[in-house]
Amino acid sequence: MFENVGWPEILVLVLAGLFILGPERLPSAAAWLGRNVRKVREYASGARDQLKNELGPEYDELRKPLEDLQRLRGFNPRAAMTKHLFDDVGDDSSYKPNGHPGPIGNNGTDATKSDNRPLEAGEKPPVDPDLT
């Protein structure tokens, strides 16, 4: 939750608290905040433990989709597209979108079975009309 909060942000918060509350009330306000944060953590862990005890094995089934959502939180679309575009995704012969047999070349042959040679000057690249 607070992984993006660094020392400069904490320093700004302390200085703002010092100006707003004054030096005489700042220590008691910090102690109050610490106590309440600890209480909230205890309530959250108690609720999680109680839910885990009541649900039993179903708790793991509930937890898995939540963990998947947590993993998506760190999703980097640029890295995913780079991996998809530049990794050898064409080597997987089992992947055929929508049951399509594969890209068809200009001469009616299956373009996935080509020799992957560079195009000659003036030669048209293979086209898949379903994808264009």
Score class of each variant (00 low, 15 high):
P129Q: 08
K124D: 11
L13W: 14
D110C: 11
G108M: 03
L131R: 09
A47G: 01
V127M: 15
F75D: 02
P27R: 04
P97F: 07
F19Y: 13
R73K: 08
A80F: 09
N76I: 06
V5P: 05
M1A: 15
P103W: 10
L131S: 14
A121V: 10
G122D: 05
K64R: 05
W7N: 10
R73V: 09
T82S: 12
P125N: 01
P126Y: 02
Y95F: 14
M1Q: 08
L55C: 00
E120N: 13
G108H: 05
L26V: 08
A111D: 04
E123V: 05
E9S: 15
T132R: 09
L85D: 02
E54Q: 03
G74I: 01
N106T: 04
D49R: 14
P129V: 04
Q50A: 11
G56P: 00
S94D: 11
N107K: 11
A29E: 08
L55G: 01
E61F: 09
K52T: 04
W7M: 15
R71G: 02
P65A: 00
D49A: 15
L21G: 03
A30R: 12
F2L: 15
N76Y: 08
N98M: 12
A121S: 09
K113D: 04
D110F: 08
L55M: 07
N53K: 13
V14M: 12
A16T: 10
E123A: 11
L13S: 14
G17F: 05
L131K: 13
N76P: 03
L15G: 09
A29K: 11
L119N: 02
F75E: 00
P103S: 09
L21I: 03
N36R: 08
L26D: 03
T82V: 13
E24L: 15
R78V: 14
E120Y: 08
P125C: 06
F2Q: 11
G102Q: 06
G102C: 06
F75H: 07
E67C: 00
W7E: 13
E123Y: 03
L33V: 13
G56V: 03
D60W: 09
L13E: 12
G90L: 15
L33M: 10
N106C: 07
K83C: 07
G17S: 10
K64G: 00
L15V: 13
D128Q: 15
D128H: 15
S28V: 14
T109V: 09
N107W: 01
G22W: 05
T109M: 15
T112C: 05
F19V: 14
A80Y: 04
L131P: 01
L11D: 12
E42Q: 04
S28P: 00
L51F: 11
G74R: 07
D130S: 08
T112V: 06
A44F: 07
L119C: 04
M81G: 01
L62Q: 01
N98R: 11
P103A: 14
S93E: 15
D49L: 15
A31P: 02
N53V: 04
D128I: 13
P101D: 06
R117N: 06
R38S: 08
P77K: 06
